[in-house]
Design a protein around this nucleic acid. Structure first.
Lengths: 148, 148
DNA sequence: CCATATGGTCAAGCAGCTTGACTATCTCGA
DNA sequence: TCGAGATAGTCAAGCTGCTTGACCATATGG
């Protein structure tokens, strides 16, 4: 495989990723969740199961814990999450989603499903499943990184 | 297809895109091109064929022309591009890559090829071609957007 | 040939991140 | 058990890359 092919694949991947992020964010805003940015969505997915600490979030997002702390302050102020005392560590706080935070997460899922539906119109449902399977196999562990 | 599947696909796509961007940038830096960020790469691909104006770049990157102008100032100062008088419009300037800019672009292609090679180890060459084909069919036109 | 549109830059401001410093609490070995 | 170092979180200041607003030079069209 030539370098130019690798570059074309990379460009397509990054274009699709940018468009996906943009459309999910627009869909979330259109559903009435204001003042929320893509980075918040990545935070929500980490908070979703059982909550997380500020440091957990910082690692997940690949930023300093100060930056994560500011982000938490913002989503708490906007009503998407709340700070609770940590059950086993008095230094830490457990950040958990509020009902509004859960609703916002569901809105993001709906918006994502809409975008994927469009892909399905082009690739077919089998094509989309194949795409998901391939991406799942090459997806890295470690912190989420902005695509630029 | 359920929302959760769409979300899993989206998460995998964004994780792969973020990792790709990160590794290309690291590869470029490792090849000795300092002070260059992912956004510069997107600018280079627009400049590569025959140059472009500041406004062209702004549209391509989805930012204001002031931001594009600052970015051009930066890559000119760092020796990756130069401003030339525009052949048919005395207001405009044609921004073209220098030899160093071309070398940096080739380094980015090499780095991208390395990442794609790893995917090939997992998916096989056919799998990677299929992936590229699928992504190419759903890739949008319009400005490049950051993935968060 | 002048009114308006367009290309580019300067200047100021803002948002989101960083580094540095600090307190409170936990952990663990002497 | 207790004291030294590690860890959780926050406050403060600074930097960077973007924005908006203002401006000049040149192009375009009635």
């Amino acid at each position: 495989m030539h370098n130019s092919e690798a570059m074309a694949l990379s460009a397509a991947l990054l274009a699709v990723a940018g468009e996906l992020t943009h459309r999910i964010n627009e869909g979330v805003l259109a559903r009435g969740f204001e003042g929320v940015r893509p980075a918040h969505g990545f935070a929500f997915t980490r908070l979703a199961p059982d909550g997380a600490t500020v440091t957990d979030l910082a690692v997940h997002l690949g930023v300093t814990k100060q930056a994560a702390s500011q982000l938490v302050e913002e989503i708490v102020r906007k009503g998407y999450a709340e700070r609770r005392p940590h059950p086993v560590d008095a230094r830490a706080k457990l950040i958990v989603l509020t009902e509004r935070g859960w609703a916002c997460t569901r809105a993001a899922e709906e918006a994502a499903a809409e975008v994927v539906q469009r892909w399905s119109d082009v690739l077919g449902e089998g094509g989309v499943r194949a795409l998901g399977g391939q991406l799942g196999r090459i997806a890295p562990y470690g912190p989420i990184r902005p695509a630029w």
